[in-house]
Structure formats: C-alpha cells, structure tokens
C-alpha cells in the first residue's frame, strides 16, 4: 500500500525555491536566463544564488541543469562558477585567536 501520494505533475515548478539560502525561485532563474544571464556566475551576481552560507552546495547543480536545459549549452560552456575559500565557514574568533599580531601594528598604508 502506498502512503501519502503526491501528484508531481501538479506541483508548480516555477514556485520551487532553487536556492534556499537566498530564497530564489526557479521562476526568477528562468526569467533571467531568458534575458541573457545564461552563465552561473551572472545569475549569481544578479540574484545571489551560490553566495549563501552553503556557498552553492544546495543550488549549483539544479541551476546549472536549468541553464543547460533552456540554452542547449553543455556544462562546460556554462561554467561552474568560481569556488572560493574557506571551504567551510569559519568563525572570525577562531582565526583571530590563531593570529598573534596586533592588527594595527605595521599595517599603515604607504600613502
């Protein structure tokens, strides 16, 4: 016996939140792709996708697939966007404790 059955064909795709960190819907992504923002980096700059606390772990694949589907381009052409350090978020205090320098010492800009 099946449990609760969701009719997937009735889900309105457009309202699906593709990037949970930045609360961006598939609808928004589709609109921007159609207006020429057809690389991951450009969508990132415009809507913030990929720039949330998870750094795109939750949304990059879905968005790349959507770009590929709408433009007919391969993943290579779309570009995965740049991965930036730190790989995992790290507390300011953790790095401060590890750093012995006084931030004001010897840091005067030359002009």
């Amino acid at each position: 016996m099946a449990g609760i059955c969701i009719d997937k064909t009735k889900l309105d795709d457009d309202d699906v939140v593709v990037c949970r960190c930045k609360e961006v819907t598939l609808k928004e992504i589709r609109e921007w792709i159609d207006r020429g923002y057809d690389t991951f980096d450009e969508l990132k700059r415009l809507t913030g996708v990929g720039m949330g606390a998870c750094q795109g772990r939750g949304c990059r694949d879905i968005i790349m697939k959507e770009i590929a589907r709408r433009t007919g381009k391969s993943f290579d052409e779309i570009g995965t966007g740049t991965f930036r350090p730190p790989v995992k978020p790290v507390k300011l205090g953790t790095l401060t404790a590890a750093n012995k320098e006084d931030p004001w010492e010897g840091k005067v800009v030359s002009h």
């Binding site: 750094q55 740049t82 930036r84 507390k91 300011l92």
Partner: peptide, 10 residues
Amino acid sequence: AKDIRIVRQW
C-alpha cells in the same frame, strides 16, 4: 562579531 562565520574570500 567573534562568533560570526566567514563564508568567502576573494
């Protein structure tokens, strides 16, 4: 801010 986490540098 010491418990705030850094997410990205560039």
